[in-house]
Amino acid sequence: MSAVAASTVDASLFALCLRLGDSALILSQRLGAWCGHGPALEEDIALTNTALDLLGQARLWLSLAGEVEGAGRDEDALAYWRDDREFRNLLITEQPNGDYAQTMVRQFLFDAWHRLVLERLGEHHDSRVAAIAAKAHKEVLYHLRRSADWVVRLGDGTEESHARTQATLDLLWPHAGEMFLIDEIDGEGLRADWDAQVDAVLADATLCRPASTWAQQGSGQGRHTEHLSRLLAEMQVVARAHPGAHW
């Protein structure tokens, strides 16, 4: 393989690892904010466990990203010493928690995409990518079952829970569309499977699929909503206040 070809492969692989690692890291941070505030003890524990699963996945992807980059940056450097314009997480993962309906709809739309991506990456030509994807896939299957169940419970629940869930679905839908505009994975092929999966859950939840086909985009170029910079300020403050500290 020529040096140019190798460089192209490395850049593509680096971008893929950042997209998956950053998305898992930012969503983990969002879910971690629910710790101690869940609507029930069981939910509090489940949300925290999901956040920890995603954090573990983020560490694996970002460690591989640092290895591929070859610039001496490890998982901590990539997590704590990049600004918002350098992050490549999906926009949906940085959206605020809102109420419980907003948290669970956000989780479901992401989980449905995440499962499909990891299944595809389980056959990746790079054995390191395939191994991380296979491990993460087992965890994400649980995440998806749980978030889909909550969407159904809230959508097909009381009049108020139905209204809140429909409102948050309409709000987040344009951010979900961005998941299929990335270059590293065949978004078009994933979309049909994602649509079928999501439509089945929405039908059980008596929710209406939003009619809009417009998709928010920009994270692939480091263009994010205002929510990410605020999240990073909180997530990175200790590391930046005490650089090099260990405990």
Rank of each mutant, 00 (worst) to 15 (best):
K135C: 05
D156T: 02
A58N: 01
L60G: 06
R19K: 12
E86L: 10
H246I: 12
E159D: 13
T168K: 09
K135M: 10
E42P: 01
L141C: 12
V129D: 01
R120C: 09
F87P: 00
W61T: 04
H224C: 07
A24S: 13
D84H: 12
W34E: 04
C208I: 15
S127W: 13
I26W: 07
E123W: 01
L13P: 08
G98S: 02
D199M: 05
V237Q: 14
Q29E: 13
L144Y: 09
R106T: 07
L27R: 07
L13E: 11
A192D: 15
A58V: 05
T213G: 05
D53S: 06
E184W: 03
E86W: 08
D76H: 10
R145N: 12
A163D: 10
L231W: 03
A167M: 03
H137S: 15
S127V: 15
L16D: 03
F14E: 07
F110L: 12
V152C: 03
M1P: 10
T165N: 05
C208W: 14
L41E: 03
S212K: 05
A196P: 13
R240S: 05
Q217Y: 15
A136C: 10
Q221G: 06
R209C: 06
V152G: 01
D126N: 14
L121N: 02
L55I: 08
Q236I: 01
D156E: 08
V237C: 12
D126G: 04
A245W: 14
F87Y: 12
A239G: 02
T213Q: 11
P39C: 15
L54N: 02
F87H: 07
R30H: 05
M235I: 02
H242M: 11
L116S: 01
A112Q: 00
D83S: 09
D22Y: 08
A245T: 01
L25T: 02
T8K: 15
L47H: 04
A205Y: 02
H162P: 06
V198K: 06
A6K: 14
A241D: 09
A51N: 04
L202V: 05
D199R: 11
D111L: 00
L54W: 10
L109E: 01
N97T: 07
R106K: 13
